[in-house]
């Protein structure tokens, strides 16, 4: 395949950035999107030019490291697929492909296509856990968990923390990410004792990080490579409201 790539290049967070155009030929339809970028980088490096910087690691769609806006869509046009699992056979010969980093004030661009998603880590640190020290756990089968609840918990827990939801949202909201963790831990009985505190802490940390507000565009759900449903956001809002009505304030 022959492709025209319009790739975002940016030296650092201060740099204004710009698109750079490259022609790439002999791309195999069987290669993944990131392998296509490898091919571009190998060519740039051989010519002594600086390669395009992007985050990636497992290349199996599970680590959440890769995140590219491909033709304006987070992870590209194929539903429920991360950029690393998107293959070039999904594109046509001669196509022009635009590649940008996640665009969100809370995910500052570090270089080229690499952004800083540490805000997600801080949201988890604010309460995205069950407080159980190593060694203090009871026998695993002591508390039966209905299969439906366990399956629901998994559906939310499958979030890979890639940030596509934020990147695709016109408001740059992180509700889907936050709701998925609140939903996962709230769906199992082990998460009950801290449920109110957790939702208050996490929602308020999310706001502090500067993410936008959710206005139900549902772009996040469509962009999520793991297909996490926005109904979790409804649960998040309900949980937050109830906790606030019960007078729960943020506590660290």
């Amino acid at each position: 395949m022959n492709l025209t790539l319009k790739v975002w290049r940016q030296e650092n967070a201060q740099d204004a950035g710009r698109f750079e155009e490259h022609q790439l030929s002999d791309v195999s339809a069987d290669s993944s999107f990131l392998e296509m970028l490898d091919q571009l980088n190998e060519r740039l490096e051989s010519a002594g030019e600086s390669p395009v910087v992007f985050d990636h690691d497992c290349r199996e769609g599970i680590c959440g490291a890769c995140g590219l806006m491909i033709n304006g869509q987070a992870h590209g046009h194929r539903a429920r697929t991360t950029a690393c699992q998107l293959h070039m056979r999904e594109f046509s010969d001669g196509e022009t492909i635009t590649i940008e980093p996640w665009r969100s004030g809370s995910f500052p661009v570090m270089r080229d296509l690499m952004v800083d998603r540490s805000a997600f880590d801080r949201i988890i640190q604010s309460g995205g856990f069950i407080s159980v020290n190593t060694g203090s756990a009871p026998e695993a089968n002591l508390i039966p968990v209905p299969k439906e609840k366990s399956d629901a918990a998994f559906d939310a827990a499958t979030c890979i923390g890639c940030g596509a939801c934020v990147a695709q949202c016109p408001n740059g909201a992180a509700q889907l990410f936050t709701a998925a963790k609140v939903g996962h831990l709230g769906a199992v009985p082990q998460g009950d004792p801290e449920a109110d505190q957790r939702v208050v802490n996490m929602v308020e940390q999310m706001q502090e990080e500067g993410f936008g507000s959710c206005t139900n565009h549902r772009e996040c759900e469509a962009a999520c490579p793991k297909g996490i449903s926005i109904s979790w956001i409804a649960g998040l809002n309900r949980g937050y409201l109830k906790a606030k009505l019960r007078g729960v304030d943020r506590r660290s």
Partner: peptide, 22 residues
């Protein structure tokens, strides 16, 4: 055996039978 106990207490959603057991 302790690992499974610990993970379940952390909320790890392992596969379960309809009766709620692992």
């Amino acid at each position: 055996v302790n690992i499974i106990d610990q993970a379940v207490a952390q909320g790890v959603p392992f596969a379960r039978e309809y009766g709620g057991m692992l």
